[in-house]
Simulated assay, not measured.
Amino acid sequence: MEIPTYEEDENSEEDLNNQQSFNVTDSQDEEGNQHEESTSTTDEETESTSTTDEETESTSTTDEETESSSTTDEETESTSTTDEETESTSTTDEETESTSTTDEETDQQKTDSERVCKKYGISFHQLSQVKILMRTHTENKPYSCKECDKGFSRISNLKRHMRIHTGEKPFSCKECEKSFRDVLHLNTHMRIHTEEKPFSCKECKKYFSFLSHLKIHMRTHTGEKPFTCKYCDKCYSYSSHLNTHMRIHTGERHFSCKYCGKCIRDEYDLKIHMRIHTGEGPFSCKYCDKCYSYSSHLKTHMRTHTGEKPFSCKKCKKSFHDGSNLKSHMIIHTGEKPFSCKECDKSFSFLSNFKRHMKSHI
């Protein structure tokens, strides 16, 4: 029987050790591989988890973005709604302003219409002035005089009227110290001193200091004769002419000539009559320097220079310088004999023939 040597045992042991070492190594390698694989798997899981986290984060981010976008949309919608409300409010304000402007214009037009006199169409700055004027149309006279019960539409008119009863004349002329009850009469009076003539005739351009004088003058152009004699219905343009005419019917003669004692009906005629005694001839001819006491005589005389013959006979068409010559001529056609002799009852057509006849009785 052979006994194994040491060497074989040693080799066997080394082999065994090697085999064990190899097995350990393999086991370790397997464990390492398993650990690496497990680690790898863990890394993969970790990576997958990281990816999931990233996806989750991305999803969260997307959700946030979606939410933010939704919020933005809501804000945009809210902003749009606010803009629409603002625009609507602005439109409402504009409509309100337009309505207010229309109301103001309506009120202004109403106020303007109230400041116009409905009867004459005169505009005033103040409504109170229109109301005062309207009293004159409606005969509303709330202010009454305690002395005579006369009514007035303005208190200022009543105060001025009261001066008639009190005799007060607070406005005095500095030129002649004449006094007046109101300043209007004083201003009118002052034109006498200043010779101001603010009123002019449109027909002949003649100027007047007083409106009343212009109105009277206009009757010469219109031919108006508002003053009528109650005895003979004769009409006159001026009241003074009517008064003078009335003295023919009444026989009244207030004025007498101091030279011959002749009674004259009015002062104007007396002044003209006085020229007979004084020889005054204020009217002179510019062609021959002849003077006349009456303007009518000068006008008749001027026709001898101009050759004008405005008075024509309707029977024979003969013309004359003045109306008296025409009247004398008409007797030839009518056969009238207005001049009668009281001694022999003989009649004559012309005054000159009558005078010559009267000498035959002397």
Score class of each variant (00 low, 15 high):
residue 6 Y to F: 13
residue 15 D to K: 13
residue 20 Q to E: 15
residue 23 N to F: 14
residue 27 S to T: 10
residue 39 T to S: 12
residue 50 S to T: 12
residue 52 T to F: 09
residue 53 D to Y: 10
residue 56 T to P: 00
residue 63 D to H: 00
residue 64 E to G: 02
residue 64 E to T: 13
residue 71 T to I: 14
residue 74 E to Y: 01
residue 76 T to F: 07
residue 77 E to I: 09
residue 78 S to C: 07
residue 80 S to C: 01
residue 83 D to S: 07
residue 88 S to I: 08
residue 92 T to R: 10
residue 98 S to L: 05
residue 101 T to N: 13
residue 105 E to T: 05
residue 106 T to W: 00
residue 108 Q to I: 12
residue 108 Q to T: 15
residue 109 Q to I: 11
residue 127 L to R: 13
residue 131 K to E: 04
residue 131 K to V: 06
residue 140 N to M: 01
residue 142 P to W: 01
residue 148 C to P: 04
residue 158 L to K: 02
residue 159 K to P: 00
residue 163 R to A: 07
residue 166 T to M: 07
residue 171 F to C: 10
residue 172 S to D: 12
residue 182 D to T: 04
residue 182 D to L: 05
residue 183 V to W: 02
residue 185 H to E: 10
residue 189 H to Q: 03
residue 200 S to C: 14
residue 204 C to P: 04
residue 205 K to Q: 15
residue 209 S to I: 07
residue 212 S to H: 11
residue 216 I to V: 08
residue 223 G to H: 08
residue 223 G to V: 08
residue 232 C to F: 07
residue 240 S to E: 05
residue 243 N to C: 04
residue 246 M to I: 11
residue 255 F to K: 03
residue 255 F to W: 12
residue 257 C to V: 08
residue 263 C to W: 06
residue 269 D to C: 04
residue 272 I to S: 12
residue 273 H to Q: 10
residue 290 K to I: 02
residue 291 C to M: 03
residue 294 Y to G: 00
residue 297 H to N: 14
residue 299 K to A: 03
residue 299 K to R: 15
residue 301 H to I: 07
residue 301 H to C: 10
residue 301 H to S: 06
residue 315 K to A: 00
residue 331 I to C: 08
residue 336 E to G: 05
residue 339 F to T: 05
residue 343 E to C: 03
residue 343 E to A: 02
residue 349 S to I: 06
